[in-house]
Design a protein around this nucleic acid. Structure first.
Lengths: 165, 165
DNA sequence: ATATGTGCAAATCTTTTGCAAATTC
DNA sequence: GAATTTGCAAAAGATTTGCACATAT
């Protein structure tokens, strides 16, 4: 009677149909909030929305530069801040597997945690009804209005835990 | 039939008896692992163990300097890395309420999440059987050997959600 | 036309590292 | 005495900011 979702990024990527996890269209959400849309914002938002993997600021910049070489780091960070402020993206650390940078993903209809293997670096996403229940419990018990939830798990994946160090 | 634990840091602090959350003694754990104990390590470990609140590297250094002014930033970071490696402390972001720094706390017998109010900055700790169940589910379902879990929740606390912005 | 966004370059904040001297076992 | 740890100073990595110019509504 397990109802969770386990997906490795490489298998399912960020396919919005994967395990009924979907993402609202950032562009529309921004318009709905009356946010001024510029060329750069459209570009960056499009990249984040469509990315098959979690992006950090440097990677996002790199990809954006292929479309518009004039775009600057500062714009990337400012756009990320805008999207985070509006609650349209989630920020992840992925257990700091490599450096202290942050990763971003368009907010999904269903919150999910990220499971990272310390040895091979695999990232899996995990959503389940237990997770939803926990969130509800936290909100009710502490009378808290939850805006964002970050669940990160680090350890050894199936393969790596068998292999000796 | 709620079984969770909700405690604001200011109310209960890091009292090891609070809500049956306890912390093993770092010093003993280090000895058990055959780690060489130096004066600085004893100092830093003692501070972390006894701190009533979550410490970031800079604050830890500041406190340590009161006891031994010669201690250096690098030693603080190296000791934190040692403790993290050995699985004796947990690293928190507290939702980056102020800057990108990390916070540390001695690992407790029971994992708990941190709930942060975006408006007033209050931090609450949350442990519950649902959380334990979720962890178990994740481990079983994804056949993962969990080493660390980080659950962070951001939003508005009871008081702040009532008040207008 | 006005308010807002952008590039650039410099600054800031946090954490890491190489190396010679000091400490621990 | 050999191996490990430390302080120092410099470097690195990630993100932010001030300002003059460009763009969006």
């Amino acid at each position: 009677m397990f109802r969770g979702v386990v997906a490795t990024e490489s298998q399912l990527g960020r396919d919005p149909n994967a395990a009924s996890i979907t993402r609202p269209l950032l562009m529309k959400e921004l318009a709905a909030r009356g946010v001024r849309m510029t060329a750069q914002r459209r570009l960056l938002v499009g990249i984040i929305q469509d990315s098959p993997r979690h992006l950090d600021a440097a990677t996002l910049l790199e990809i954006a530069k292929k479309h518009d070489p004039r775009i600057d780091r500062a714009t990337v960070y400012r756009t990320i801040a805008l999207l985070k402020d509006r609650g349209l993206i989630d920020e992840l650390d992925l257990m700091h597997l490599e450096g202290e940078k942050h990763y971003y993903e368009a907010k999904t209809n269903r919150d999910h945690g990220h499971i990272a293997c310390f040895r091979c670096g695999a990232i899996m996403e995990y959503a389940s009804s237990s997770f939803e229940r926990l969130k509800k419990e936290i909100a009710q018990q502490s009378e808290f209005e939850i805006r964002t939830v970050r669940l990160e798990v680090g350890g050894l994946c199936k393969k790596c835990k068998r292999r000796p160090s």
